[in-house]
Amino acid sequence: MSIQPPTPRTPGTPLSTSPLPEGTMPPPSPPRTPRMAITLAQPSSKKKKPPRSTRAMRAVRSIFRSFPIIGSPACRFPTNVPRASSSTGGARQHDGHVPGASRTTGTLFGYRKARITLAFQENPGSVPDLLLELAMPTGKFMQEMGAEHLRIALECEKKAGERAKLLEEPLWTAYVNGRKIGYAVRRDPSDDDLTVMQLLHTVSVGAGVLPSDMMEVDKQGADGDLAYMRAHFDRVVGSKDSESFYMLNPDGNNGPELSIFFIRI
């Protein structure tokens, strides 16, 4: 019996979809871009505790400090304490620094339609020791920044017998310029948050955008670039139930300022 030669394939006829020959491996998928390495340092508040012997010696010294001192003259504090400025909420020196305050780095960032995130760090190269997510879209918040003075008030309820530090409270009622916007939630930094901090670890003060391709994420609301604003803040501890952060203008002008108040009532 004669075998007919194979007929050529007519143009436009689809190719056969038969499986690959036995023993043939499918082509490998393209490699995924690895996530950026995080080299941020841990804040000093999360470093190792001192040895037990050192803590014991400190406890002994604290007992001796509690003993009364006989015959010592009374000490009076100066009465000419500078009054708080009505425009900034705290007394300022000529360089804009609040006397007696500690300096920290604050960063506001987020996608235009996503909620804005507030992070405080000891320095730009450290992991945030406080990170809050506010119930306000980033685009709306940037519009509010056009106000002469932007004030954010965060309030939480005081519970009987509670010993948690003020900034360790998990949930806050948030107000922007006296208007309630919802809640602010404290959370641990995510991988995306740490990526933002890593990309900005060389930025001490400034504002701008991070292109979406640098973030290596595809999340809801992540349309377009990520906007950020970073500045130095003066941290003022009023009591165990009140703290304030005042943004410092690097150029010393009278431009928009940002004040953030934490209050436990």
Rank of each mutant, 00 (worst) to 15 (best):
K219V: 08
K219R: 13
K219E: 12
Q220K: 13
Q220I: 02
Q220R: 13
Q220S: 13
G221C: 03
G221E: 00
G221L: 05
A222K: 00
D223Q: 07
G224T: 00
D225L: 00
L226S: 04
L226G: 07
A227W: 09
Y228T: 05
M229Q: 10
R230L: 06
A231W: 02
A231Y: 06
H232F: 15
H232Q: 13
H232L: 10
H232E: 15
F233L: 05
F233Q: 08
D234Y: 05
R235S: 12
R235F: 12
R235K: 14
R235N: 11
R235L: 12
V236G: 00
V236N: 00
V237N: 04
V237F: 05
G238V: 09
G238H: 14
G238N: 13
G238I: 09
G238L: 09
S239M: 13
S239H: 07
S239P: 08
S239F: 14
K240Q: 13
K240Y: 11
D241G: 12
D241T: 15
S242M: 15
S242V: 15
E243W: 03
Y246C: 02
M247L: 11
M247P: 06
M247H: 00
L248Q: 14
L248N: 06
N249M: 04
P250S: 09
P250T: 02
P250R: 08
D251F: 15
D251Q: 11
G252P: 05
G252R: 04
G252S: 03
G252Y: 10
N254I: 09
G255V: 00
G255D: 11
P256I: 00
P256S: 14
P256K: 05
P256V: 04
P256E: 01
